[in-house]
Design a protein around this nucleic acid. Structure first.
Lengths: 217, 217
DNA sequence: CGTTTAATTGAGGAAAGTCAAGTGAAGTGG
DNA sequence: CCACTTCACTTGACTTTCCTCAATTAAACG
């Protein structure tokens, strides 16, 4: 069994102070810069956090899967915006209640630290993807990352599940939608992956995928 | 007074279990994938963490200033390599001792959580820089980031101190050294910044710098 | 079944990367 | 104190590649 952030007991405690959110696809959760009143815990579906450029366009900062926590704030304000990528169920935990729980329940701290380390590594992985120049390399790394996370969640992994749209992926890896589309095509044509439909891709040639992901640029 | 990660009391406790490292410029500290035995705390100088590509070249993941902690590991192995960018003094804290301290000293947990949140935001900022396409925008964001950190450390900030070389910056923001050089030149020529020497830059036109940093691409 | 959204594909232009040569500064030893 | 070596950076010419824009096609949704 995989490592759970919270024990059953802890979950029960949190359930008392949490409210349940049910969100439709595309629905906003909070906006960058607005007062941070709560942290969230994804129960089902996919959430993304993103930062908007002053003018237009946006950079996706993270995808949050079931079990993930989001709602990081700085000086009482959210550092990024969040929205539901698919239909989402999430727990909303008021900050004051979380603080109270943290101060009385010492065991919780260690779990939180572990979770934060995971998120930190995740952010670094993301930075690593963004640093690459070639769309193909970015996509290869992204697919490997999703596969890795999927395994970590203990789900089936004979094929990779992609809950988000191609433009969502494009905004996460930092390329244009057109370039991402071409990258997908190239992986398909070369027999590296095989797409059953828009949301399911199977890795056919794992070695080739790794080789592409390890490219310097 | 700025927020300190550790109280004087906590510092004293840590001092007992820490060994002091003195490193020359360029000296390696640990290597990606090697067994993680300790975490480190920068006392003076500048450290960088980086990941190497299978073939050659490397991506700088973070710059660590005095007060920063580094040595993040996953499954007992360091997730990146670390080296001294300048001459460095650092405290080396054996993992077993840190664990013991954490389990007995509850106050420490909260400080660690705060610190991890800071690092997480930092990693996200880095990702944001890497996502930009224009070298000028990347450099502008990098300079703002350094200024911000410098203020956070409570140091003078009428000019920005750049301990690292231009190629170090280039590897952090993800552009070629040539492109970075051109970006510096352009900020200078347009009167946005003014470089006293290789390691000191003054922001002349803060508004223009912000405008450049806020560009979408 | 029609409408809206998502994705593909093509052509053209802008921009950064690479390569390579040259310049400047910093440190070294005589 | 000054040549000499080395390292850090600059600058130019050329090439590659991705982005932009736009026109189609395909898929999802009511």
């Amino acid at each position: 069994m995989r490592h759970q952030l919270l024990s059953e007991n802890e979950r029960a405690q949190l359930a008392k102070i949490a409210s349940i959110l049910r969100l439709k696809k595309g629905e906003p959760i909070y906006h960058e810069g607005s007062p941070a009143e709560a942290v969230f815990n994804v129960a089902a579906g996919l959430v993304s956090t993103y930062m908007t450029f002053g003018n237009s366009g946006q950079q996706t900062m993270a995808f949050l899967f079931p079990g993930d926590i989001f709602g990081l704030s700085e000086e009482g304000r959210y550092t990024s915006s969040a929205k539901a990528v698919t239909a989402v169920t999430a727990y909303k935990l008021p900050l004051h209640a979380v603080r109270r729980l943290l101060s009385t329940n010492a065991d919780l701290d260690l779990d939180i630290i572990v979770k934060l380390c995971q998120e930190l590594r995740q952010a670094q992985r993301h930075a690593f993807i963004l640093a690459k120049k070639s769309p193909v390399t970015k996509l290869a790394m992204f697919l490997e990352m999703l596969e890795y996370l999927q395994i970590g969640r203990g789900e089936d992994h004979w094929e990779i599940y992609l809950p988000m749209s191609k433009s969502d992926i494009a905004e996460y890896v930092g390329v244009s939608l057109a370039a991402l589309s071409r990258a997908f095509r190239m992986l398909n044509d070369r027999g590296v992956i095989s797409c059953r439909d828009r949301h399911h891709a199977k890795v056919v040639d794992k070695v080739a995928l790794e080789r592409l992901a390890d490219q310097p640029a």
